[in-house]
Amino acid sequence: MAVETDVLDELRRLRTRIPRLTGSLAATVDGLVLAHDAPDTEPEGLAALTAAALGVAHRMTDAAARGDFRELLVRGSGGYVATYAAGATAVLTLLAEDRVNVGRLHLEGRRSGARIADLVATHVEPGTGRHADRPAPAEHLAAAPTVTTRPIGTLPVRTPQRPTHQPRPQTGI
């Protein structure tokens, strides 16, 4: 069975476990939708924004020396957007109403993130699914330690890094 279906089952289960949850989305760290259960939202846009926010969040934890990225909570006047790491390659984003039990949102979000990480790790086979164009899993498995040390969301991070390096030669002169 495709990983997307299993992840979608997990998202549906989340909806029954967290009252006042309005939507959920699992995406890869580079912003591709894995599965979504979020009516009234555009999943592709949300996945892309999640990837961008993840890049910033990862730099924040890095700059503040707080270790690896775990979760990101954003609160608007109408509710919460919470993003949880699901292994090194996927993320889980949850949308909830303002009156949600944030404690429960965190508990279930963390658990679900870990479960999605397992699903993604066991289901992604060579030449299958959406990631057929990615390197074979033999490489993935061999590179497993480096994957964990490699920052999540490296791709969106690179763009803002360049300007910080450019002014240096000018000040040196």
């Binding site: 009252p19 039990n101 944030v102 404690g103 429960r104 965190h106 508990l107």
Partner: peptide, 25 residues
């Protein structure tokens, strides 16, 4: 919010964060 402002006691088997979220409900 279901979050604990402070906790004391509790063990690995008795997670007060879980208790806080559950008893909020």
């Amino acid at each position: 919010s279901g979050m604990a402002l402070g906790t004391l006691g509790g063990t690995k088997d008795f997670n007060l964060e879980v208790a806080a979220a559950g008893n909020t409900d």
